[in-house]
Design a protein around this nucleic acid. Structure first.
Lengths: 335, 335
DNA sequence: CTGAAAGCGCTTACAG
DNA sequence: CTGAAAGCGCTTACAG
């Protein structure tokens, strides 16, 4: 059915080896032969079967990317960058959704579609400490986010403690004194949230301000509805607060909606800040202050680290990705 | 390095054929043999090389999805649904970004990674009438969005004319009389926008209201910034308007931001409506009226249609996907 | 500079 | 119920 190397060879009157040489750009082919082969390739519309090539070479040129869900904007933005960066290296990306479930993350980790995938980039949520070391056999893996284990597996992350500390400090120095938190870790696996809470506490320590942990709200997930629900609960406690630090932007956007419904003015009555700096932060009402990880850099390093490991290199890019705290309307000074 | 079928066969003391039979669940294997084989598989941690299987069977279990960009929320939502639907059928999805460029859409169409992909789902923007017919050879293709050519290629869409007509009619019947449009087609390829404009005109005809095409704003893209820019221009004309129909939600969200900056009240002074019903419509300020295509259904039918074509079936699902006009705060009656 | 042959790891008629 | 062998479409030492 499809055109094969053999067909091209027959038409050009050469061996398959020679066609292969031309296709793969080997230098030692006479100009005449090369021209004949290229003409045959053109005439037949030949395209090499990458599956077969890959079986032979042991390289597919495909990597897998595992994220909780693509319709969570942050992950869509990261995925877009990863696909771009991979494409620049001639790699194609297979995207898998895990819903943050351990089972499915393990599935991705152990090289979903064995034999077809050269490497894996995974943004894990449910993985436990030992999972990674036990499952990673064969394909190279790069983890996005906090280190899951003390293992040798590459992981890329921003300094969550420092980011949360800087953001919290800016809230405190602008006069806020009762900073609520939405998204505190509940289970044992929410390592990023734990670190952010740590940063929050350190900022309070830095400025000698006491915090009130009754203002810390847990969430069932990290989407708008969860943020809305948490702030609803927060308001319900009757406790006063003059700022909310949400551990991601969607939570913050959900929070804004509920505050508005309660006629709480942002930032006059309550400052609100998020994390991730998704596109929407620049367009929400009010625009949203957020921690902005350099997603382009994150994706680039993830792909390059993976590539380096696939090449068996020991040298990989710096695992710590830069971030910035972007101040917007939602935390403008109340004075 | 990796464990092969042969290794399992040796350990179990049977032929590779028998191991293959066990793995593929063929019925005629004695219980003893099966148990021995399964034990060996377990002991060695054997996982079949899907690349090799695929080379032999001609089926990879991988499909490609081509979208303009993943960080455009609508496409991320569609992609999330496609991956879910594909997963339910045991298919994995390779995601490619085209930026809406013709060249790259053709690349996807002609079966990016030949031999590794069983079928293609593409949401085209730049493809011309004849492109599709000429390029589609080999792998089955399902197009998302308006029919690009009169070709036999499957395409799934909503009734854009009727959707725009219903939405426009609701604006007119609620008393709006000067309905601006943001996102009118400029080039020759913007078929969906053209149909939406058609629906807009029909609604005016239905109710015998004249439209003013000086209120029709073109855009360079379909993102927030483009909507903001267009409304900026619209305001600049000095022409009065009491509603804006944006041809997607991001344009509408950009529009809201600019109107707010100009202290134009929505919906009191101007009603605003979008298209696609992305998640954010339910959380923006004000919440945004939009045409809501059934994305789950769209993705499901896309995958099932593709599967049917890959199986060589002639029967495919209905290409017309249902939609609903969801009324929210942004178009509440001004009376 | 080019060819004949082996082999990547599977599946599948074909025998027995 | 199980085995020996061919072949999917490539690449790659090995000769010449």
């Amino acid at each position: 059915m499809a055109v094969r190397l053999k067909d091209v060879a027959e038409m050009a009157g050469v061996s398959v080896k020679t066609v292969s040489n031309v296709i793969n750009g080997y230098p030692h082919v006479s100009a005449t032969t090369r021209a004949r082969v290229e003409a045959a390739v053109e005439a037949l519309g030949y395209r090499p079967n990458l599956q077969a090539r890959s079986l032979r070479t042991g390289r597919s040129g495909v990597i897998a990317l595992g994220v909780p869900r693509l319709d969570e904007v942050y992950f869509a933005e990261v995925a877009a960058h990863v696909i771009d960066a991979a494409g620049a290296l001639g790699l194609t990306v297979l995207v898998e959704q895990t819903d943050g479930e351990r089972e499915r993350e393990l599935e991705v980790l152990s090289g979903i579609r064995p034999g077809m995938v050269d490497g894996v980039i995974l943004s894990p949520l449910g993985l436990s400490r030992t999972d990674v070391d036990e499952t990673t056999r064969g394909v190279p893996v790069v983890l996005l986010g906090e280190r899951v284990s003390g293992s040798a597996v590459d992981h890329l992350r921003i300094d969550n403690v420092e980011a949360a500390r800087q953001l919290t400090r800016s809230l405190l120095t602008s006069g806020r004194r009762r900073v609520a938190v939405v998204g505190v870790p509940t289970g044992s696996h929410a390592s990023a949230a734990r670190l952010r809470l740590d940063g929050y506490q350190r900022a309070h320590g830095d400025l000698d301000v006491a915090w009130d942990d009754e203002l810390w709200m847990s969430v069932a997930g990290y989407r708008r509805a969860d943020g809305a629900e948490a702030v609803h609960r927060l308001v319900g406690t009757g406790k006063p607060f003059d700022a909310i630090f949400c551990f991601n932007d969607l939570l913050a956007l959900g929070a804004l909606a509920v505050l508005r419904r309660h006629s709480v003015r942002v930032p006059e009555d309550v400052a609100v800040a998020g994390f991730d700096d998704i596109d929407e932060c620049s367009y929400s009402v009010p625009t949203l202050t957020s921690v902005s990880p350099d997603k382009g850099e994150l994706a680039l390093r993830a792909v390059h680290t993976l590539q380096a490991r696939m090449d068996g290199a020991g040298d990989v890019p710096d695992p710590e990705v830069p971030f910035a705290v972007v101040q917007r309307e939602s935390t403008a000074s109340s004075r």
